[in-house]
């Protein structure tokens, strides 16, 4: 007598259904939403290419300029960006935010492309002014109901990581071929900024 054998696919499906039925531990009150706050905060700066281009460009420029700009610029940017974010959260209006963001990518990219070497305070001020636009845009877009602390930390850490990425790429400046490559990268950032400027006008 033939016994009916279950198809492997049916077995797998049955097991999967049982696994999905498994109830998870309830994390009530303190934990709920906090991890989501950190992750959503971390994702926010890297979710927009216009922000990514400018923040990586800050790192590239810092690496190109060398010490102390290599660490002053990436420290100045998150601090001033957070100030801009605070203004955005408080509802303080800032006109032309999208244009400011696009201009930041254009000018920072151009600075890397032409290897502009201004005084430190000039570079820090320029980066700081651009950071306000980026921060304000983030601040006005922040979703309600998140954990303020974890969201803020995720947000700032992601921004810092983007700068670190820029600095990491910028270390190719130590070699002559790397210097040319870095200038090309600056040009690409500027082109990206021009694209976002065109989109802002369109």
């Amino acid at each position: 007598m033939n016994e009916r054998r279950f198809d492997p696919l049916v077995r797998a499906m049955a097991l999967t259904v049982f696994v999905f039925l498994c109830a998870q531990t309830a994390f009530a009150h303190p934990q709920k939403g906090e991890a989501v706050g950190f992750l959503t905060g971390f994702r926010h700066p890297i979710s927009g290419l216009d922000h990514v281009l400018a923040m990586v460009a800050v790192g590239l420029w810092g690496a190109q300029l060398g010490a102390p700009a290599i660490w002053v610029l990436p420290v100045a940017f998150p601090m001033v960006m957070a100030f801009g974010g605070m203004l955005g959260l408080m509802g303080v209006p800032l006109p032309g935010t999208e244009y400011g963001i696009a201009i930041s990518a254009i000018l920072l990219g151009a600075a890397v492309m032409f290897e502009v070497r201004p005084r430190l305070w000039v570079a820090a001020t320029l980066v700081g002014v651009f950071a306000i636009f980026h921060g304000h845009a983030h601040g006005t877009e922040l979703p309600p109901g998140q954990s303020a602390l974890l969201y803020s930390m995720g947000f700032v850490i992601a921004t810092g990581c983007l700068h670190a990425l820029g600095i990491g790429i910028g270390t190719v400046h130590l070699w002559s071929w790397g210097q040319k490559l870095l200038r090309v990268a600056g040009g690409l950032v500027a082109v990206g900024g021009a694209f976002f400027m065109w989109k802002a006008f369109a």
């Binding site: 660490w71 990436p74 420290v75 998150p78 601090m79 960006m81 957070a82 100030f83 974010g85 605070m86 203004l87 955005g88 959260l89 408080m90 509802g91 601040g139 006005t140 922040l142 309600p144 303020a148 602390l149 969201y151 803020s152 930390m153 947000f155 700032v156 850490i157 810092g160």
Partner: peptide
Amino acid sequence: RIAVRVAGSWIAASGLLMLGWAVRTR
């Protein structure tokens, strides 16, 4: 030592954003 100071700037920046959350108007 600079990396430690950078960590401090991140903490301060988080504080600024938290301040914004505290007085959020929207």
